[in-house]
């Protein structure tokens, strides 16, 4: 495990109590169908949201380009990453410069 989970008080933001690291288990990479989730994004940013209204929190992915995709969550896992559509059928995309 080369990505160490460290509480580094000296490097922490201003005001950090420093010694109260809350631990998580080793990370598991999420797959979207057969593909790696977020692999085609620059700076993928996930947000949980029930896109299709089925009661399951899906994952919506933003990124540097502003173009939004999502992956449907089912009991079997996450489905393929697809463009998130606006009401006019175009891909939801936030302006970047």
């Amino acid at each position: 495990m080369t990505h160490l989970l460290l509480a580094l008080a000296a490097l922490a933001p201003s005001g950090d109590a420093g010694d109260d690291l809350i631990l998580f288990k080793a990370p598991v990479q999420l797959m979207a169908g057969d593909a790696e989730l977020g692999r085609r994004k620059m700076y993928p940013s996930p947000a949980a949201f029930d896109v299709d209204g089925d009661g399951m929190q899906d994952l919506v992915l933003g990124g540097l380009s502003g173009r939004v995709t999502w992956s449907r969550r089912t009991a079997a896992g996450l489905g393929p990453e697809v463009p998130m559509e606006r009401t006019d059928g175009k891909q939801l995309s936030f302006n970047n410069w």
């Binding site: 950090d16 080793a26 990370p27």
Partner: peptide, 29 residues
């Protein structure tokens, strides 16, 4: 004051991706 939930530091390079090392965008759920 901020409390540390997670610190990642790629001290040496793994031979395959083992976790995020920069640009951490979190969701909490």
């Amino acid at each position: 004051a901020p409390r540390t939930l997670l610190r990642v530091h790629g001290e040496s390079l793994p031979t395959s991706p083992t976790g995020p090392a920069e640009g951490l965008y979190p969701e909490v759920i």
